[in-house]
Design a protein around this nucleic acid. Structure first.
Lengths: 211, 211
DNA sequence: CGTATTTTCAGTATAAATACCGATTTTTTT
DNA sequence: AAAAAAATCGGTATTTATACTGAAAATACG
């Protein structure tokens, strides 16, 4: 019996590439492709794939949210994350969310197929480049996820406005809050992301897909 | 005689997707794929494609640099730019660099094929979504390219350090310059990119692929 | 219903960035 | 060689952000 796979990626061209690759292999069957997380989640109540290939940088819901839901509602589905090199921040958190493997979007055909087969057998697959990066940034990633990179609703809101050319005072006016409150949120953002100024904050958040 | 095409993209998975799509059409022939601009340029002295599909966000050389070189050295080659929605900043500058068409990475198979055929006939092809965005941001883009979004070497250097968590004083020490000089560069960066603070500067630069 | 987290707000102080005024020297381009 | 652009540095004033106290109210969660 063949391995049934679904793909989630907001990039149709990537989906197309994966689709065409998988087609060539008899032991793997593509039973669904999705451009956003909600569509995938809806369809999972009907279809039962063995492996779900998930893009990490999604515009609406972030990859780890989807992974979390799938992991809890459909624990039998094995997940394989699709990621760029730039986004290693999520990796540890994704591991905890039950993701079994990581492949890069810049991966080759053979590596992809190998990864699908491996995670379907219950093993873990980490792209070698990701392994290196993990090794290299081990400490900072550990700290990263330790006190949580997960931002609260307000923090995200403030973050977004900061990136949009607003000052603290303007943000305060916009949200009908005190400037102190905004300062407070800014401070928390800097602490959570371990940066010491707004410039680095914005960069890191974009790198992590929070913006 | 079929349309001979080369592809430049640092994302193997995208290349793979394009490759598989083009394969299916008899009137289009893929004669080369490249993961970086230099490889493509080297090969152009031997191969003579009709159409070159170029990724815009490349890590080493930026897309418009490549386009400029091709346009001047091989004016017969028609260029089709591959872009994300996020990066419309380059579009006008690319047009001036001789690019004939724009397709989104999130495009569908048919649109891609249609675009290749159209630009090969000497016509222009703009993805409808890009058209909309161009319309919407018309004024700001015009201003953008007018006084040049092109940053100088020093400005890029300072910009990078700003994004890396350094203060003006620290940057000054690092580069053995006066703090005033750094202030000067910062001010120019803000003016050139038409933003009023560092946060927005970083965001815009990342959006534009300058970081 | 009680506990934890989030969100809210305050004072004060310092550090940093931005807004103006300017200018000279060096490098690149024509 | 001349012109243009880039890179350098200075003073001063103002605005904004960050650091350090701390704490009350609102929400979410078990």
């Amino acid at each position: 019996m063949s391995i049934r796979v679904v793909i989630l990626d907001d990039h149709p061209l990537i989906v197309n590439g994966l689709e065409n690759i998988i087609k060539k292999y008899d032991d793997i069957e593509l039973i669904g492709t999705y451009l956003n997380g909600d569509d995938l989640l809806k369809d999972l109540s009907k279809k039962k794939p063995d492996v779900a290939i998930l893009d990490i940088n999604m515009p609406d819901k972030s990859g780890d949210e989807i992974a979390k839901i799938i992991f809890h509602e459909y624990p039998k589905i094995v997940m394989l994350a699709l990621t760029n090199l730039d986004n290693i921040y999520y990796i540890k958190s994704m591991l905890q969310q039950g993701v079994s493997g990581y492949i890069l979007k810049s991966t080759k055909e053979e590596t992809l197929i190998q990864a699908i087969r491996k995670v379907n057998r219950g093993e873990q697959f980490l792209d070698s480049t990701i392994k290196d990066r993990l090794q290299h940034d081990k400490i900072s990633i550990a700290r990263q996820t330790a006190h949580g990179t997960i931002l609260t609703r307000r923090e995200k809101e403030v973050l977004k406005l900061i990136a949009e050319n607003y000052t603290s005072q303007e943000i305060a006016d916009k949200l009908f809050l005190s400037k102190r409150t905004i300062d407070s949120h800014r401070l928390n953002l800097l602490l959570k992301l371990e940066v010491k100024n707004t410039a680095a904050l914005i960069k890191k958040c974009i790198d992590m897909g929070l913006l």
